[in-house]
C-alpha cells in the first residue's frame, strides 16, 4: 500500500472530522483503511489538520495546511478535492481564531478574515445547495460587521429548515440574534450549539449591549454570561 498509482487504487487518510477511527477514501467509494505509518501523505496531512481544527488547535491546523500546500492562498476551490479540504480548514481556522491563524506570511487578521470569507464563498459556489458548506460560510460571514446581515439571513434560514449541524454556526447565530435583541432566539441557538459539542465554551454568548427592550434579567441565567470577548458583533 505504498504507491498511490495514477490508477488511484487507494488513498489512505487519518480520521476526517468527527470520526474516531481511521478513514480512507478509495476513488469512488469510501472505505476505512488505516494508514501504514510512513512520512504522511498530503491526504494524511490534511486529515491531521482537520483533526487539529476539530480539537480546537487552530494554529496547528492552519500551519499544517500551509506546509502541505504552500501555494494554497492562491488555489481555486473545487479544482482538487484535497486542496478544497485544505482551503476549508485554513479558512475555518482563521475564522475561529478571529483572523489570528495563518498570520505568519504577513497577513493581518482583517485581511485574513476577508480571505477566509472569499474562500468559503468559492467553496459554496462549487458546492451549491450544501447546507454544511453554507453553515461554514455563515460562520465566516458573521465575523465582519459588513457581512453580518448576510450571515444572519443565511444562518437563520438554515436553522429554520433544521439543516445545520455545526455548533460554531449555531454559536454565530446566537451572537447575531443576541445583537439584534432576540434573546429567546439566542438562547435557543445556544442550546442547539451545546447539543453539538463537548466544548460548550464555544457556545457562550455575551449579553446584548444595545437592546433596551430586552429585560436583561431574562438573559442572565438563560444565556451563559461571559465577558464580551467576541469582537465586532454589530447590531443591525
Amino acid at each position: 500500500m505504498k504507491k498511490l498509482t495514477a490508477a488511484c487504487v487507494f488513498l489512505a487518510a487519518l480520521a476526517p472530522i468527527g470520526l474516531t477511527a481511521g478513514d480512507a477514501s478509495a476513488c469512488g467509494m469510501s472505505v476505512r483503511l488505516e494508514p501504514i505509518p510512513e512520512r504522511p501523505t498530503p491526504v494524511q496531512e490534511i486529515a491531521n489538520a482537520e483533526k487539529a481544527m476539530d480539537s480546537g488547535n487552530l494554529l496547528a491546523a492552519a500551519s499544517t495546511v500551509l506546509r502541505t500546500f504552500p501555494g494554497i492562498r492562491g488555489a481555486t476551490a473545487g479544482s482538487d478535492p484535497l486542496q478544497t479540504r485544505g482551503l476549508r480548514v485554513l479558512a475555518l481556522a482563521i475564522v475561529r481564531s478571529d483572523g489570528k491563524a495563518g498570520q505568519a506570511s504577513g497577513w493581518t487578521p482583517n485581511a485574513n478574515l476577508e480571505w477566509a470569507i472569499q474562500t468559503m464563498r468559492e467553496i459554496d459556489q462549487k458546492r451549491p445547495n450544501d447546507p454544511a458548506v453554507q453553515a461554514d460560510l455563515g460562520e465566516a460571514l458573521s465575523k465582519l460587521p459588513r457581512t453580518q446581515p448576510e450571515a444572519f439571513k443565511l444562518l437563520s434560514l438554515l436553522a429554520q429548515k433544521d439543516l445545520m449541524g455545526s455548533p460554531f454556526a449555531y454559536s454565530a447565530l446566537a451572537h447575531l440574534r443576541q445583537a439584534k435583541g432576540d434573546t429567546n432566539g439566542a438562547v435557543a441557538a445556544v442550546k442547539k450549539c451545546e447539543e453539538m459539542t463537548k466544548n460548550t465554551s464555544i457556545c457562550k454568548v455575551a449579553p446584548a449591549k444595545a437592546a433596551p427592550s430586552t429585560p436583561v434579567a431574562a438573559v442572565v441565567g438563560k444565556v451563559a454570561m461571559v465577558a464580551p470577548k467576541r469582537p465586532r458583533v454589530a447590531a443591525f
Binding site: 476526517p16 472530522i17 468527527g18 470520526l19 469510501s30 445547495n129 450544501d130 447546507p131 454544511a132 453553515a135 429548515k161 433544521d162 439543516l163 445545520m164 449541524g165 455545526s166 453539538m196
Partner: peptide, 16 residues
C-alpha cells in the same frame, strides 16, 4: 440527492 451520512454536519445538512 446530496445526502452525506459520513459525519454529523453532513447528516444535519439533509438531502435534495
Amino acid at each position: 440527492r446530496g445526502l452525506n451520512l459520513s459525519d454529523y454536519n453532513g447528516i444535519a445538512a439533509g438531502f435534495l
